[in-house]
């Protein structure tokens, strides 16, 4: 949070909140009122989500007004390319991709937990150290370090969670 997002970004998120709040209000309004169960009308399930939806949409509107006063939408905000932006996006996508593949794709789908974990940690370290290692010509060493960390993490996590905290690992 070192840099503030542009007014245009605020405008977009404000629009999102207004839609989100509106969708909640709609969902709450059309929600079953459970009249056939003879419930007390003050306890209808949609009451609180409805109020929250109104609040969210209202605050979204405030944010919208603020963003417009600050000059949004500005074409420059969208077009302006900060140097290094692209590298950042690639890095985030790679990190998120590795994490998702590990946690959603492999964990709990048959393979033993320690193996998947060792593989994930090794791959993560190796991938992110790859550019620097290649520049220094220490790729093999990098792979070794990554493998070692992966194995150590897998062993420690399995031991601690399975034996001490008695968690049945996925």
């Amino acid at each position: 949070m070192d840099e503030r997002p542009s007014a245009t970004a605020d405008l977009l998120s404000a629009v999102f909140w207004m839609f989100f709040g509106g969708a909640i209000v709609y969902g709450a309004w059309t929600m079953d009122r459970l009249e056939y169960m003879n419930i007390n009308p003050y306890t209808v399930p949609g009451l609180v989500p409805g109020i929250l939806g109104v609040c969210i949409a209202f605050m979204g509107a405030l944010l919208l007004i603020r963003a417009v006063r600050a000059g949004a939408p500005k074409l420059g905000d969208i077009v302006a390319e900060r140097p290094g932006r692209r590298v950042e996006i690639v890095r985030v996508l790679v990190a998120a991709g590795l994490c998702l593949v590990y946690a959603a794709g492999f964990v709990g789908h048959g393979l033993p937990f320690w193996l998947v974990t060792a593989g994930f940690v090794t791959a993560f370290i190796f991938v992110f150290q790859f550019p620097a290692r290649r520049a220094d010509d220490t790729l093999l060493r990098g792979l070794f370090v990554a493998l070692l960390c992966g194995a150590a993490t897998a062993a420690a996590v399995t031991l601690v969670f399975q034996e001490i905290f008695l968690v049945r690992l996925p």
Partner: peptide
């Protein structure tokens, strides 16, 4: 590069540990 994958492994297993169901990992 080394600490973050380990932190993530802990996040995964930490979400799973309480109720031991995979849905909690997806929530995370």
């Amino acid at each position: 590069d080394i600490i973050m994958p380990i932190v993530f492994v802990l996040c995964t297993i930490g979400s799973f540990a309480i109720a031991q169901r995979l849905f909690d990992i997806w929530t995370m």
